[in-house]
């Protein structure tokens, strides 16, 4: 059973701490553009939706990468990106069905969530519990996991 980041938009206040936590953790700066998680606001309904990599079961990014810089770790469920192997072709960026893969030309690297190797900082610093990191076992949690919400919509790519 693998762990995953579970998102509850109803709890998100839109403070964007997660974006800053990610950018600081990974790139030592406070730039939401460098974060692998981003919060989208839907003002009409008063909801904020944090979006990050869903660590798909059959990842499109892995399928298109010409140098195997992306790989699904079957134990942790995480799709890992090897920065040293990556040649910056940006195939993965246009392939991700959820737009969760970005490329920073300034940093010359792909920006992708790796769940901080099992200790996601965004989760740690989220003040409202809108993102939590846990075993994806009970059906309620599965339903809450953003991945499962898309199951019908996007079919086979996600777990």
């Amino acid at each position: 059973m693998s762990k995953g980041i579970i998102i509850s938009p109803d709890k998100c206040t839109g403070c964007r701490t997660c974006e800053l936590a990610c950018s600081f953790m990974k790139h030592d700066n406070f730039n939401p553009k460098d974060a692998a998680i981003s919060v989208l606001a839907f003002d009409e309904v008063g909801l904020q939706v944090p979006m990050t990599c869903l660590q798909c079961d059959d990842p499109h990014c892995v399928a298109v990468c010409p140098v195997n810089a992306l790989e699904k770790d079957e134990n942790t469920g995480v799709v890992n990106h090897d920065r040293e192997k990556c040649i910056g072709c940006k195939m993965c960026v246009s392939a991700c069905p959820f737009g969760n893969m970005t490329y920073s030309s300034r940093l010359k690297q792909v920006i992708k969530c790796d769940e901080c190797g099992g200790d996601p900082q965004c989760v740690k610093l989220c003040p409202s519990g809108a993102i939590v990191y846990k075993e994806l076992d009970s059906s309620m949690e599965r339903r809450r996991n953003i991945a499962s919400c898309f199951k019908e919509a996007f079919g086979e790519v996600i777990r």
Partner: peptide, 17 residues
Amino acid sequence: CNECRKKIAADKLKESF
């Protein structure tokens, strides 16, 4: 584009909530 794909995905999630 990836930005719009992200918006669509977030929108779906928003709807379900």
